[in-house]
Design a protein around this nucleic acid. Structure first.
Lengths: 205, 205
DNA sequence: GATTGACTATACATTATGTATATCTAATTT
DNA sequence: AAATTAGATATACATAATGTATAGTCAATC
């Protein structure tokens, strides 16, 4: 006899709620812990008031939980403002805005730093984060195409894209954050990006 | 009765040799493995033909082994050339040379990438690596002091130092290495550093 | 009232770091 | 030559983490 399956509004709502609670507990644990080393599913489960097996039921694995946390942070990190930025008339102003948006994103929740640390020990998670970063790379590429002149070599464009991609990455943000506020880091990165744009016209330095 | 202790040339020589063998096996394991995740003392010990306890006798801990590997790589990585570079008459040429030396260093042994990954899970190891990086920061600071004019603000100097420090870091090198040779990365970083120097004269962009 | 989905309880397999204790062997001292 | 010592081994154990397996609980749904 075929099993009769059904969808349950109350059930899935409760499940979604516990899911949110686990994600919240996980990001809090990441935020408060000083290193990814002590981040365990046991800790998260206890903080969320559920069993460790519930975490596995919801996310499948440690990696699944980390990806869910990253996506949650991304959803509330203001990255949706990128769409507006990309439509700005002046592509240089758009780049400044993009830098601002990402500096705010990297600084908003310190859990993103721990998530980047998790890339080191989990190659597949690293790949997942890298794919999410590709959106930033595509944004930079589009702006560079608009800024570059017709005589700009493909090599110069590629260099500018990759350099700005590196400048707007989390590691660069974290490095510059020692002794600087988010806004100060933003200013430094913006200036560096301007300089990278100047090299689009001056192929040889 | 007091224990009679003695130093044994043959013994310490043999110990030093096994130590070298373990370090070699560890760096090879790091180089060949595609992630730090699978790097275990068991694997290293077997690769070196010793017991896991021998590793503990020699290095005390996993962290101790990793630090020893990093120091070994640093010893043979050409960083001693920095001394010559720092004495160059033209500080801008010295900076170019410094970038070149570090690009070669980061690219020489792919184990350095894995060691940087290990920073994520071991805060004390991370601190040890950071201390070793301070030498680079001091070098950059010294050069910036020579390049900056009297009217250059302390803030502008600090910004230049930190930006160039970030540009010459391993994460930046790794990011730019996608689709680029070591020498091409070097050129991109050098150009970016030149631009950072230009901002020493132009306080506001 | 029977069944189903989410969660729980408990147990187990595996892997890794790190510690403890006793033993072995060759180099060194007396 | 005999005792001792440093380095390495053998074996065992404690701890913690991920991940899997199985049975059971309880409320929502059919």
């Amino acid at each position: 006899m075929p099993p009769r399956s059904y969808v349950s509004p109350a059930r899935s709502a409760a499940a979604a709620e516990t899911r949110e609670r686990v994600i919240e507990a996980a990001s809090r644990t990441l935020r408060e812990g000083e290193s990814i080393a002590r981040f365990s599913l046991d800790t998260v489960a206890k903080a969320a008031g559920v069993t460790r097996l519930t975490v596995y039921n919801q996310f499948g694995s440690r990696r699944g939980l980390l990806e869910a946390v990253f996506d949650e942070i991304a959803r509330h990190g203001g990255l949706h403002q990128l769409a507006d930025a990309m439509t700005m008339a002046d592509p240089r102003a758009a780049l400044d805005r993009m830098v601002e948006i990402f500096c705010r994103f990297w600084s908003r929740d310190s859990a993103v730093g721990r998530l980047h640390d998790a890339m080191a020990t989990d190659p597949e998670f690293a790949e997942a984060i890298r794919e999410r970063n590709e959106r930033r790379r595509r944004g930079v590429t589009a702006l560079i195409e608009r800024i570059a002149g017709k005589h700009t070599s493909p090599q110069a464009r590629k260099d500018a894209v990759d350099l700005i991609f590196a400048l707007t990455s989390y590691p660069t943000f974290a490095s510059l954050s020692a002794g600087r506020s988010k806004d100060e880091v933003c200013r430094v990165v913006q200036t560096a990006c301007h300089a990278a744009l100047a090299n689009l016209s001056n192929p040889s330095s």
